[in-house]
């Protein structure tokens, strides 16, 4: 049968054509099936994941407008009836304790002060640091780089015991500035990684020209590097803000005793365990806690995604 085929076609490539013909036919139909399946599967998978990612937030948002009676009457209904939508919960959660609220306005202010201070100190320290690591050849540069990477990987729970013990002993545990410095120690390594990669893209020639004009190192950083890296620095600042705003463990360890110093994260966690708070108020608190971070994230999402991956991939 093989020979018959050969004599009919009469070329050298017959062997290949013959043996691969049924295989290719099979592959072609398999290809068509796969393409058709994937065409359906792709949007289905994407849609499912999108729903899974967003749904819990949407649910909390919806519940923040429903009172407990309506919720208990009909827990299986997702959308609230338009006439029962109330925003009282937001008023409740934000008002100070004296007015019967949960004082979240003050807690947001606490969180904002702590987060902004963390951002400023982190940048003040990390900008020169990352410039040095990206540009200057100094003794121990490699070791310093690995130190920052190791610190970036190191989880907070291992620091919980020694820092808790040390600051309790020093009598400084309830101090929000101590907390800020602890946050800086957690963010400075990430900041250096993100900025280092960006600084490496600034052309060295610019700096050499500036040095010839008599600028010192700090002058070069201030006049050349800072303006050219502004987008990276801003997105880095917002990233550090998000870390400080979201942080829970150290806020719990350091600030839990004094309610007037709580951060929003800590406040919501503490109130969740208090049975008497109405659910809608907690939902509103959760939205108030999430909103600033989500707003920042959407404003800077492109920078952040790029910075995060490049920072960690190079490490």
């Amino acid at each position: 049968m093989t020979e018959a085929t050969v004599s009919r076609d009469g070329t050298k490539s017959v062997h290949i054509v013959r043996s691969s013909r049924p295989a290719r036919k099979f592959t072609r139909s398999r290809n068509a099936i796969e393409l058709r399946v994937l065409k359906v599967l792709r949007p289905v998978v994407a849609g499912t994941l999108l729903l899974a990612a967003v749904f819990p937030f949407l649910y909390v948002l919806v519940l923040s407008t429903r009172d407990i009676a309506s919720l208990q009457r009909d827990p299986a209904r997702f959308w609230p009836a338009l006439d029962e939508v109330r925003l009282d919960a937001y008023v409740d959660v934000l008002l100070p304790l004296e007015s019967g609220g949960q004082d979240f306005a003050r807690l947001m202010l606490n969180s904002a002060v702590i987060a902004v201070a963390t951002v400023l100190i982190t940048l003040l320290v990390a900008v020169p640091g990352s410039y040095a690591v990206s540009r200057l050849d100094f003794f121990g540069r490699r070791q310093v780089s690995s130190l920052f990477l190791a610190v970036y990987l190191f989880p907070g729970i291992l620091l919980a015991v020694p820092l808790f013990v040390a600051f309790t002993r020093l009598g400084l545990r309830g101090n929000i500035w101590v907390l800020v410095v602890v946050y800086v120690s957690q963010t400075v390594a990430v900041a250096i990684f993100m900025l280092k990669n960006y600084f490496q893209t600034v052309p060295v020639g610019l700096e050499e020209a500036a040095a010839l004009d008599g600028l010192g190192r700090l002058g070069i950083i201030r006049r050349i590097i800072l303006p050219l890296s502004l987008p990276a620095i801003v997105s880095n600042a917002l990233f550090v803000f998000m870390i400080a705003w979201n942080e829970f463990l150290f806020a719990l360890l350091f600030l839990v005793e004094d309610r007037s110093r709580w951060t929003v994260s800590l406040g919501l966690a503490q109130l969740t365990n208090a049975l008497e708070t109405p659910p809608a108020t907690l939902m509103a608190g959760s939205i108030v806690l999430t909103l600033p971070v989500v707003a920042i994230f959407f404003a800077t999402e492109k920078f952040l995604a790029g910075g995060l991956t490049s920072g960690a991939e190079k490490g």
């Binding site: 640091g129 410039y131 040095a132 540009r135 200057l136 050849d137 540069r141 920052f148 410095v181």
Partner: peptide, 15 residues
């Protein structure tokens, strides 16, 4: 080298 060490020192000290 001296400039580099000086600039990176605050971060290293904190960490």
């Amino acid at each position: 080298a001296r400039a580099g060490l000086g600039l990176v020192l605050p971060s290293v000290v904190i960490v």
